[in-house]
């Protein structure tokens, strides 16, 4: 019943949007070649199932791979930066620079360098998803109570035990917040990578549909792409629930939800 209570509002909004969509298309308010009707879009989704599945899988694969690499590298970079001021001073400006360079602008360069295959897409996804992971992990590692760390030093466990038992677990809520942002960005990254040069993936599907003025397929591609992002986000939420029950229960306890 809990999930019902939480999900009826967004579902209602979604249904309302679909109704408006259906209305404007069936009344001919907007020409079907500009906006296809929900029915037409659904038709494409069903008829071209195999085609869409294939390309969805390609994009999902690129996204997940990019996200995982970004997560691992991001966490390692954050740990290094928190434990060494020299590394932080060296790495931080470079990270910031890599973040402000528009990924859409360097994506074509990756195609030139690395061709049309998997690698440039994953690379764009990594680049775009990396920053929120680093920032959230650094914040998390630095958020640890100094008294707790002082206490740990009187317990004589050494830096490794302090990291494993105190610092790392304390940083996880921050890390998960960053990972959730990162995973949705990774989808964007993969699709941007596909836009600049690909012969498969949802980005490719959309470009093709665009060229053929096949708006139902374009819409279908957009919808599936969003669903991939939502699904990955939900998976991360579930992982968070599983790994940080203490944090989640705290966040959604009866008292905190009423204020």
């Amino acid at each position: 019943m809990d999930w019902l209570e939480r999900s009826w509002r967004p579902v209602l909004l979604l249904v309302a949007c679909l109704a408006v969509w259906q209305l404007v298309t069936t009344t001919g308010l907007i020409a079907p070649y500009l906006v296809p009707s929900p029915a037409a879009t659904l038709d494409v989704l069903v008829e071209k199932q195999a085609y869409i599945w294939h390309h969805t899988w390609v994009t999902t694969y690129e996204t997940v791979l990019g996200f995982l690499i970004a997560a691992v590298v991001g966490v390692l970079a954050a740990v290094a930066m928190v434990y060494s001021a020299t590394i932080e001073k060296t790495l931080y400006p470079i990270l910031l620079f890599a973040q402000v360079v528009p990924k859409i602008a360097i994506a074509p360069l990756f195609v030139v360098w690395l061709g049309f295959g998997l690698v440039p897409k994953v690379l764009v996804a990594v680049l775009i998803a990396f920053f929120p992971v680093v920032i959230s992990m650094v914040t998390g590692l630095k958020s640890v109570d100094t008294e707790m760390l002082e206490l740990a030093s009187t317990m004589g466990g050494g830096p490794l035990k302090t990291f494993v038992k105190i610092r790392f677990p304390a940083s996880l809520p921050h890390l998960f917040a960053g990972l959730k942002v990162a995973v949705t960005l990774a989808v964007t990254g993969a699709v941007v990578g596909e836009f600049v040069g690909a012969n498969e993936g949802l980005g490719f599907v959309i470009l093709q549909a665009n060229g053929n003025i096949d708006t139902p397929m374009l819409f279908a591609g957009l919808i599936v792409m969003s669903l991939v992002g939502v699904l990955l986000f939900v998976l991360l939420e579930l992982a968070e629930r599983f790994m940080l029950p203490w944090h989640v229960s705290r966040r959604t306890s009866a008292v905190t939800t009423t204020i």
Binding site: M148, M155, G157, K165, P169
Partner: peptide
């Protein structure tokens, strides 16, 4: 302030001392 680890139960917070040592 008690400075407890919020993901550990009362008993495991007490046992942190032993684990660290």
């Amino acid at each position: 302030r008690a400075a407890l680890l919020e993901w550990r139960s009362a008993r495991r917070n007490i046992l942190l001392q032993a684990e660290m040592r």
